[in-house]
């Protein structure tokens, strides 16, 4: 990964990004009784925050740290370790293309190339209209349906480049057609 240096000491207040709302904080607090330590709520807290804000902002890292009584640096340490957390703005829908050996043998590489061309972006980037972000994933554990890709929650199986137009044109291409649990959703959504 490329080296990016940020001077966080003198960072302007408006560059910290949005913070946690009261409802998000309440939702995070609801996880506290599950664990004997506050710090263990960190991963659920980050999932909830990312669902609500689309990414983990610097301000939300500070506020999560305060809520869970841990240093903000430790929050950032965890955020940057896991590949699912985004610190920069993310599109409304995130496309994860599987690049495991099985999917590659079944044509995953070509699928990714066509998708990049269609969206006009590279891995880790977002389309200018803010609709899609693109990333690759090591294995989506759906190898019998290779090549596969995940759009937000919905898994698309056995995707050939010819299917892409249809998938991208469908406004509900990221929605599951099944009852969901709202556990990690932003408060007020879903249900």
């Amino acid at each position: 990964m490329a080296w990016e240096t940020i001077n966080r000491r003198t960072i302007a207040d408006e560059d910290l990004g949005p913070g946690l709302t009261v409802a998000i904080k309440d939702k995070i607090r609801a996880f506290l009784p599950r664990y004997p330590s506050k710090r263990a709520v960190l991963l659920p807290a980050l999932h909830i925050t990312q669902e609500a804000l689309g990414r983990i902002t610097l301000r939300s890292m500070r506020e999560i740290a305060e809520l869970l009584e841990m240093p903000p640096s430790a929050v950032m340490d965890v955020v940057t370790f896991y590949s699912h957390f985004w610190t920069k703005p993310r599109g409304k829908k995130l496309i994860c293309v599987c690049r495991s050996l099985t999917c590659e043998l079944m044509g995953g590489k070509r699928l990714l190339d066509v998708l990049k061309e269609r969206l006009g972006i590279d891995e880790g980037e977002t389309t200018p209209d803010g609709e899609y972000s693109l990333m690759t994933e090591e294995c989506l554990a759906a190898c019998e349906y290779g090549p596969c890709m995940l759009i937000n929650e919905k898994l698309h199986k056995c995707v050939s480049p010819a299917d892409l137009d249809g998938i991208l044109a469908d406004p509900n291409n990221d929605k599951l057609d099944m009852p969901r649990s709202d556990l990690f959703d932003p408060p007020g959504h879903g249900m």
Partner: peptide, 29 residues
């Protein structure tokens, strides 16, 4: 017995048992 689901966030090494434990405690795996 209480039972909870804890969601990971994309790290192969968290399948190792002590990496999993560290991750559950809210640390890097």
């Amino acid at each position: 017995l209480e039972c909870y689901i804890h969601r990971g966030a994309g790290a192969y090494v968290c399948g190792e048992e002590t990496g999993l434990i560290e991750s559950l405690e809210g640390k890097r795996g």
